[in-house]
Structures are given as C-alpha cells and as structure tokens.
Design a protein around this nucleic acid. Structure first.
Length: 470
RNA sequence: CGGGCUGUGGCGCAGUUUGGUCAGCGCACCUGCUUUGGGAGCAGGGGGUCGCCGGUUCAAAUCCGGCCAGCCCGACCA
C-alpha cells in the first residue's frame, strides 16, 4: 500500500514519468489534432497563476495589454526576410473562408510581430509617442514536427510583448529589464526555478532579431529548457512596416524595437524542474491550492471542522481547499493531492478533533507534525514561506552540481550527458557549436564568467553554457 | 521528409508464429455490503463490428493485398 507504481520512476524512464504525471495529476490530455492539447482544470489553474504573476510584473514594467487578430495576411510575413524564412515551414495557412477560396490566404499567427508592427506604424508619429509598450496574451500556432504536451505543442498559450523606442540603447535596456524584472524574478521567486541568463548565439537567435536574450533552466534529467526570451529586433521591422517618428530635431527616424515572451511551456518546466517520483511539486507562491484540508474519516464533527478551518486559512490569505470526499479511502486522497504537488496537507480525523489539533503533512521534506487547531493558520503560513525558500535552494544546489567547466569539445560532450558544460566561447566558436549540434548539444546561452548578462553577444571573454535541450 | 516500430473496451497489454476452443487480462468505471490515520476487501455488473477497405476460406484479431493513423530516432522549435 505504498505509492510505488503510481508513477514510472524518473530514473527508469523520464519521458514516461512526465506522461504519467500529466495523466495522474490531471494536467492535460492530447487533443484530437496532432500536436494539440487539452489543458485540464488543474493544469489550467497553474497557468492562470503564472499569468497573474507575470501580468502584474509586466504592468509594473510599464507595458499595457492589448489584443490583435489571430489571422494575419500572408503578405505581412513576407515583409521581413529572416522572419519569413524562420517561420514559413511551420505556418498554418487558411485558404478557404465562408465556403470560398480567399483572395489572399491568411496565416494563423505563429507570433505577432508583423501585425502588431503594422499598427505601430499608424500609432507612432512623434518622439512623444515613444516608448510604445504593448503586451498581449494570446494563443499562437506553429506546426511542429514533434509535439510534446506543454513543451512543444502546435497551439500554445503565451504572452508576447512588443515595444518601440527612440534609441537602440533604450530598446536594449528595456529588453534586459523585462528579462530581469519580469521573467527572472518570476521564475526564481515564484516558480522557484533557478535560471541561467545570457544571449543566444547567432545560430540560435530568433528569426528577425539582432540579439536574443534568454532564460535557461535545468530539468531533473539534466536537459535544458528555454523558459523565456527577450529580443532586440533592431530596426528591420520598423523599416519594413515604416514605423517612423519625428524626433526632437524635426527629423524622421525609425524606431528601435523589442519583443519578448513566455509561454505555457513553463508549465512543463515547472513539472520537470521540481517533480519527483511521487508526482508534481508546486512551490507555494504558485500553488493554486496551497493547503488542502482533508477529512480523514466522516466521524462526528470532522467535516464541519474541516470547513471551518479552511475558512480560517482563507481569511489568513492562504489558498485553501477542503477534501471531504470520505467515500474514498484516506490513502487514496492523500496520494492524489501529493501527485498534484499541493505543498501542505492539513489532516483532520476524529483523533485529531478529540485533541483539538490537526496534523500537517508536507509535500517536500519534513515529518508530519500536529498543531493546535487555533494555531494552524499561522503555522501553515510560516511553513509555506520556508517551503518556498527550500524548493529554490534545493533546485539551485542540484543544478549547480550538474554544471561542469569544460576546456574541450570532448569535455562538453561528457558534461552534457548529465547536465550543462561551461566553455569559453572564444575557444568553442561557431565551428565548435556546429560540431556539437551533430550530437544534439547546443549552446544554451552566452554569459559573463560570473553568470551575469553581458552587454552584447559580442563581448569578449564570454562563457558558452552548453547542453541538450527540449 | 529519411530510418525503425505499432494499431485489440477509457488506459496499459496478451492472443497473430500454427485460422476454429478467442473476445481475454490488469487498472479504471457501475451496484451492494464491509471499510476509511498512506492508492481497501469481497460479491455482482456494464463496456470492444480486434485501425479501414477488399481478398482467400466452411470459418479471419490471426493469412494475402491496398489504404489510413499513431509512436520512437533525426532535421525544426516558446
């Protein structure tokens, strides 16, 4: 009656474990069209929490939400050559509408640079209109060859920010600000996923960008997952879509732009960064349910006590929920909540009630402990804070133990079998990068030796962080 | 699109070599009773034109032909 066998162990078959978690924690199903997914209520609740936290930070960074159409004229994509080259193979194109062939096919957006910039050109006239800071939450479609739920699906959910600035410096600074203040802060303080930040190499750059910054996380199998990107687009879209303004000296100038996004892929990252053989581990700050109050058995007063306590937890600002489905055995329900990664279970049975106490059980670390009923809210609150910290520090220590310094390509290959390798970019170079690519090892990012974000990807003495990726 | 593999109740599979005795197992689901402090037990029950089309045969999940779909590895990717 232990929980072995509920999930395929990670070290036995990691992809299978991932699939098991998706099913058993009721996160998502495959959709009927290849590469699509049905996000189930609990999986969607995780996404909604991510959205709320990211959205708040985006607004603090000064960007406003707007919404642009799903359909884009095919000709828009053609305007930027790198961009069209990058996305053409994975476009979904609509040629019929209303039962008739369309005069011009429309594409389902794979990203919205083109249509948003078409409108930026109308909205930007003067330097007083700058900076223009727009974000949208949307679904996008990229016809992927090998889909995987949350990590790479044909349709996915994301936010995409698009901005226009007067100078290159201002655009670069804003892209970096989003990277740090929105994405890195969210991932580390809410998701408790430590990220490596840096620039993409030219080979890995976003189609149409002059520079791509990124955040890379390590999954429990040692592989990398790109959690988010922030791009400097330069002036190419401004030129193609004629986004010009009159500067203070009365001269026409093109704007400098950025775009940046994080997606429902982060749900997959969350699963694979923290999950263990008992299921998902959700850090308290993200958790849709931070504490579940479980009625152990339907004995006198137990269910009532659970609802009362849940109300007190909610009043203390804790996202709490009651499990009074005593028709199912206790073990079954405890395991189900564990699979869903709920940080704290507050168990109340007749024995507890007799003693005016509850039993606290923790998803990660620590023994069960009994707490006087009146002290449960403050205890839970304090523990949630500690759990949040420990999940991040554990993940960081674990990741760092799997990053090795390398001096040769052979050493990079060696280290990439279990984690990441760090090698001076000057030593590896684009030729070494291409050679590693044949073994599915890529440069995840270029960063300064101390791990900080360089001012550009051309800075000397950069370190290339290499690994296998999703 | 290249290479390998697989299609049998919701999920995972056995059965195909040697055609008949084959519509079967585990989990899940439904009903009842007993249970409930770490995935409960017993009893009963519902659900599948065996991917599709055609052929061979007295007889096809099983043999033959064609088609379709999916999975894994590669190129692509938030």
């Amino acid at each position: 009656m232990d929980t072995r066998g509920v999930l395929t162990p990670q070290n036995e078959d990691f992809p299978r474990w991932y699939q098991d978690v998706l099913n058993k924690a009721e996160l998502a199903d495959n959709g009927p069209v290849r590469g699509t997914m049905v996000i189930r209520p609990y999986g969607y609740a995780l996404w909604e929490r991510m959205q709320a936290e990211v959205d708040r930070r985006i607004k603090q960074a000064g960007a406003d939400n707007a919404y642009f159409p799903l359909f884009i004229p095919e000709s828009y994509l053609d305007r930027e050559s790198d961009h069209v080259e990058g996305f053409s193979p994975e476009l979904a194109v609509v040629t019929m509408g209303g039962g008739r062939e369309l005069a011009e096919p429309v594409v389902v957006r794979p990203t919205s640079e083109t249509i948003i910039n078409a409108y930026f050109s109308k909205w930007v006239q003067s330097h007083r209109d700058l900076p223009l800071l727009i974000n949208q939450w949307a679904n996008v479609v990229r016809w992927e060859m090998r889909p995987r739920i949350f990590l790479r699906t044909t349709e996915f959910l994301w936010q995409e920010g698009h901005t226009a600035h007067a100078t290159r410096q201002e655009a670069r600074d804003y892209a970096a600000r989003i990277l740090h203040d929105v994405y890195q802060d969210f991932m580390e303080s809410v998701l408790a996923v430590p990220v490596l930040i840096g620039y993409k190499t030219e080979a890995e750059r976003f189609p149409g960008a002059i520079n791509s910054m990124c955040l890379e996380a390590m999954m429990r199998d040692g592989k990398a997952l790109q959690m988010g990107t922030s791009h400097e687009l330069g002036q190419s879209f401004a030129a193609m879509f004629d986004i010009t303004y009159l500067d203070a000296d009365g001269k026409q100038a093109h704007v400098w732009q950025t775009s940046w996004g994080v997606s429902s892929r982060m749900v997959g990252g969350l699963i694979m960064a923290h999950g263990d053989d008992r299921g998902l581990v959700v850090p308290p700050k993200l958790a849709p349910v931070q504490a579940v109050v479980i009625a152990v058995r339907d004995a006198e007063g137990v269910v009532e006590a659970c609802h009362r306590l849940s109300g007190e937890l909610a009043a203390a600002g804790i996202r709490a929920r009651v499990d009074d489905k005593t028709g199912s055995g206790f073990g079954r329900r405890a395991t189900d909540w564990e699979l869903k990664g709920v940080p704290i279970r507050v168990e109340i049975g007749p024995r507890d009630l007799e003693q005016h106490q509850a039993t606290l059980a923790f998803r990660t670390g620590g023994e069960k402990q009994t707490v006087n009923l009146s002290e449960v809210p403050e205890q839970v609150e304090a523990m949630l804070g500690r759990i949040q910290q420990r999940i991040l520090s554990d993940a960081t220590a674990w990741r760092d133990s799997r990053i090795a310094d390398a001096g040769t390509q052979a050493e990079v290959r060696e280290a990439s079998s279990t984690g990441f390798a760090r090698i001076p970019w000057a030593r590896l170079g684009p030729e070494g990068e291409a050679a590693l690519a044949e073994d599915a090892i890529t440069v995840r990012c270029l960063q300064r030796p101390d791990g900080s974000l360089p001012h550009s990807s051309g800075e000397p003495d950069l370190i290339a962080v290499c690994g296998r990726s999703y």
